[in-house]
């Protein structure tokens, strides 16, 4: 389980993206993080991913302090962070290379097939469409078999048709390995579709909601999210 307690971050320019943030994510579950721009969603992921150093608070994973050296963290940034000097195959394999983990051809094939990347393996990422790049970035993180999966708006740059395909492929591959996941999104529908839990970040306050399993209750959750984010203060 990922457990974050009283996390605060402040930058040298005086900006405080968030303070006293607490939440938890059960193992093999997805927490979707939603909120307006500038409230620190990316900063939160970067803090969990070791890019920003922890200032106050605690972050533990399965009762150990979360560490990029101890835990495998798969991070998919907004721009996907692919390396154009490597082929798609080498991009996918780079995580295991860095962590000195032996390659697993069967898993690689499963993920590559899962994301429909088999025809693209020898190409440079710069010759791929946005949707293809996004699938490569996801495949790279999945192939690492991460303990913690951090996704920063992975679907936001995709058009509606590509997005629907990407959603299905993500569902398919995620359900095979089920890494504990934080998925930052701007879309209420994505937040409800993927999140077992939903963390709503507002200016200075945070609400963690549980996503009901029953489809008929999802509409109510969507309405609650709309109230929290779009019409704060207006009752449903």
């Amino acid at each position: 389980m990922l457990d974050v307690q009283n996390l605060s971050i402040s930058f040298t320019d005086g900006a405080i993206p968030f303070s006293n943030l607490s939440f938890s994510v059960k193992e093999h579950e997805i927490l979707t993080v939603i909120g307006a721009s500038g409230l620190g969603k990316t900063t939160l992921l970067k803090t969990l991913g070791g890019i920003h150093s922890l200032q106050t608070g605690t972050i533990s994973f399965n009762n150990e302090t979360l560490s990029v050296n101890r835990h495998r963290i798969g991070y998919v940034p907004q721009g996907y962070g692919l390396y154009p000097w490597h082929s798609v195959k080498k991009n996918i394999e780079i995580g295991r290379k860095i962590r000195k983990i032996p390659s697993d051809p069967a898993l690689l094939k499963e993920i590559v097939d899962g994301f429909a990347l088999d025809r693209l393996m020898n190409r440079s990422p710069r010759r791929l469409s946005g949707g293809e790049q996004q699938r490569v970035a996801l495949a790279r993180a999945f192939y690492l078999l991460p303990d913690l999966f951090l996704l920063d708006e992975p679907f936001s740059a995709l058009d509606e048709i590509t997005k629907e395909t990407a959603h299905r492929l993500f569902d398919r591959v995620w359900s095979k390995t089920k890494p504990t996941t934080l998925l930052v999104t701007h879309s209420l529908e994505e937040a409800v579709r993927f999140g077992d839990q939903i963390l709503v970040m507002q200016d200075g306050s945070y609400t963690q909601l549980t996503n009901p399993k029953e489809p008929e209750k999802k509409e109510a959750l969507l309405a609650e999210l709309r109230n929290l984010l779009i019409n704060p203060g207006v009752s449903a």
Partner: peptide, 27 residues
Amino acid sequence: LDPELFTPLIALGASETQLFRELVIPA
């Protein structure tokens, strides 16, 4: 260099040598 290129590698615990070898030098 786009800071986003560093993000996945730092989250993987890449050493400084690995960052140079895998990212800075080829770029």
